[in-house]
Design a protein around this nucleic acid. Structure first.
Lengths: 226, 226
DNA sequence: GTGATATTGTTAAAAAAATAACATACTCTA
DNA sequence: TAGAGTATGTTATTTTTTTAACAATATCAC
């Protein structure tokens, strides 16, 4: 009961969505088998790494053929737990929250969007993609009557911690956080920080690197001190 | 000219936005100095790792005090290239594209959103957050008259590669891709795949892990073969 | 000033991750 | 059925990353 062994290394988990994405696309093709070498071509990971990652979960390949495209996709779905049904709610029906309501990624991953909450009276009652926005006042009651697995948090930064506290008090065990505010949650609550601007940051750093490398000056940063 | 040395390890780049986020928040506090130990508390990284990361870029700390909160934030901005002005456009004015138009993260990172493009005549002319949506037909002409640094791609998957081709042909050097479709771009184009559902995947995997660990059965996956 | 304390920057050690190598097993041709 | 060819799963090696340790230096109390 609750043994902490057998936990997949984060680094492998981080590659699973990439494998999944490519395998999903391959479902539409006529390709029946794919080798680790071809998968490496697609994903940018080395073939060796791919074989190692997959072998972590079992033996899915066929010698001298490669991996059955359909079968591997199914297995990935199982590994990622997509065959288990999960209910998700969105807290905060601003622009981002509404966009998330239209997100098409839920179903195939086993998620069902069941409600959207907001405190703005102008938004309450509005129907977004067949889901009616309801008052945040109803949150606790709703969660008591519906087993919710994940809450997507798209409220303004200032409200984030307070809502997180209410969610955890109401028994949530996983939060998908878009607020860019560092949240404090109990240890047994999974917290996935979705830094929406992370890509912008990385691009900026890399463009800056290129700029610096192109100019010759090797400026050494320090804080105005020797 | 174009030497590839001095490129920051990806693993360090991936932590920079986290440091930045916390330092930004600390600007509002009265805290003048912060130690690597306190920063570790906030970020979840070890103090040793934080000191090492920062020392990669220079020496910013003060012995027995820690890091000047304001100064370190400024330095991080410089390291991440936020003091360089960059122009960004959004391609695809659907729900996600529009939400991105309202994103408040651009300015502080040195980005200026200058236009939104779509092919849908019903959207063209609509003003989102002071930016008028224009026809995708104008893309090439617009890019010729404006030096654009980054394009955010929020078009439907089917259109993604075609738009990416047009962007690169028009000289873009960085794409922030939300399409969840694997894109092919020339080597000298930076591509940042923003898998919007990555967090959902990770949560699903982890919830599944917990479920499996709580039940005792050690099922061994394989593909229906011995 | 002196000694006690604090915290960095850096070096050394440990751990984790990625790559390379290869034995094994399967397929296909003739 | 033998032999050439192929691609896995796994072991060995290398590389990268993280943690631990500590010397150096600055601060502060007295």
């Amino acid at each position: 009961m609750g043994k902490e062994i057998n936990s997949i290394p984060d680094i492998i988990i981080s590659r699973l969505p990439v494998y999944y994405q490519h395998l999903k696309r391959l479902q539409d093709s006529t390709k029946e088998y794919i080798s680790s070498e071809e998968l490496a071509e697609l994903t940018g990971f080395s073939s060796s790494l791919i074989r190692k990652d997959l072998s972590y979960f079992g033996t899915f390949g066929r010698k001298s053929y490669g991996y059955d495209v359909f079968c591997l996709f199914q297995q990935l779905s199982i590994i990622m737990g997509f065959n288990y049904k999960k209910k998700i709610i969105i807290i905060g029906a601003g622009h981002l929250g509404q966009a998330l309501a239209y997100n098409k990624g839920y179903r195939e991953r086993g998620y069902q969007l069941v409600s959207i909450f907001d405190k703005n009276p102008k938004l309450i009652g509005l129907v977004i993609n067949d889901i009616e926005i309801q008052s945040i006042n109803n949150l606790e009651e709703f969660m008591e009557n519906n087993k919710i697995n994940v809450a997507a948090l798209t409220v303004p930064g200032g409200a984030a911690q307070k809502i997180a506290d209410r969610l955890t008090a109401a028994g949530i065990k996983a939060i998908w956080d878009f607020t860019e505010v560092p949240l404090q949650v109990p240890d047994d609550v999974l917290l996935e920080e979705q830094l929406i601007n992370e890509g912008l940051c990385k691009l900026s750093v890399k463009m800056n690197q290129i700029r610096i490398n192109n100019s010759e000056t090797t400026e050494d940063l320090n804080c105005g001190k020797k």
